[in-house]
Design a binder for these strands. Structure first.
Lengths: 168, 168
DNA sequence: CTCTATGCAAAAGCTTTGCACGCCA
DNA sequence: TGGCGTGCAAAGCTTTTGCATAGAG
């Protein structure tokens, strides 16, 4: 029998193996708490916040604390095994540009630069998307390092909650 | 003489006019505080957070309070005159999908759905981008309303800090 | 003159940190 | 056994809210 979608539990097992392997390689201890957090993360297909992960973990292991969840999440993040949604993890930032435009996000300093591109404005999405709902606009988010951060040799994946101070 | 880039101060004036016109149309009072906040926002080409706006406003009008800045920002946001960076304004959310994929963001409930598209994975960016730095990956963020929110007649621009409860 | 907007201060979240104890390697 | 990791509790931040007063229309 052919399988249409690559069974989610397969991906889950694979991800779990990835987490444990990477942890071992990095010399990070595989405590039961971490293993359970790994399991929850590996199984999720959504984009949970720390509290959602904590709740899910607590269903199986009620003594796990919030801090451990946070610490584990950021550790995986530092290892590049999970990402965060949106350009930055800190406070809300506003965009006064209402017209169509796209973003260059610097992973080093957190600065976001606008750019325009007529080609990217009217991007065609795959047909399946219409089953999700109605899309009003699409925006491209390109992530990398700006020249200053490249020269400073700043790491791509730094925690970077420093300045990125705005408003000249 | 030809002008290469459309003078920033032009766009600024234009935006300021937009803010005041929209406010008047919505019956929102044009207090000096709001006008100053409008001026700051209209002039910025970056993506300031609330505090950056507050600092900039205070340089001219030292008595303005943080709350007023927040309230004004969200009001403009509700009118669709400023946007926020990233899919949601609330807490940090994590993405366990490390492979190339794109996001469908529902403006109604805040849920983010992944989708894949080989065409979108290797998007060509405009040549000018190379002067910004080095781009490691690009992701498309499509914003709209999911079926559930469409049926519920939920507004596109609602403040929406409700559930969007994750984890199945 | 009415009714909205402002400022202040306190509350409310979410997230991080210091510290002593416990447990993996 | 030596250190890293965990829990707890408290601190830190950003953002929101209640309320009395001031000011726009």
């Amino acid at each position: 029998m052919t399988r249409k979608k690559p069974d989610a539990s397969e991906a889950s097992t694979e991800r779990l193996a990835l987490y444990t392997a990477a942890s071992r390689a990095a010399g990070i201890r595989l405590t039961p708490q971490r293993l359970e957090i790994f399991r929850v993360l590996a199984a999720t297909e959504s984009h949970p916040d720390a509290e959602a992960v904590h709740r899910a973990v607590q269903r199986v292991m009620p003594t796990v604390s919030r801090d451990t969840v946070y610490r584990t999440l950021w550790r995986l993040h530092d290892m590049g095994l999970v990402a965060t949604l949106g350009p930055s993890r800190d406070r809300v930032r506003f965009d006064t540009n209402v017209g169509p435009h796209h973003h260059l996000v610097c992973l080093g300093c957190g600065l976001v630069q606008d750019f325009v591109s007529a080609t990217l404005d009217g991007l065609a999405l795959p047909p399946g998307v219409s089953q999700w709902g109605r899309v009003y606009d699409t925006q491209v988010e390109a992530r990398g390092l700006c020249l200053a951060c490249l020269k400073a040799g700043r790491a791509t994946r730094e925690t970077t909650q420093e300045k990125a101070s705005d408003e000249r």
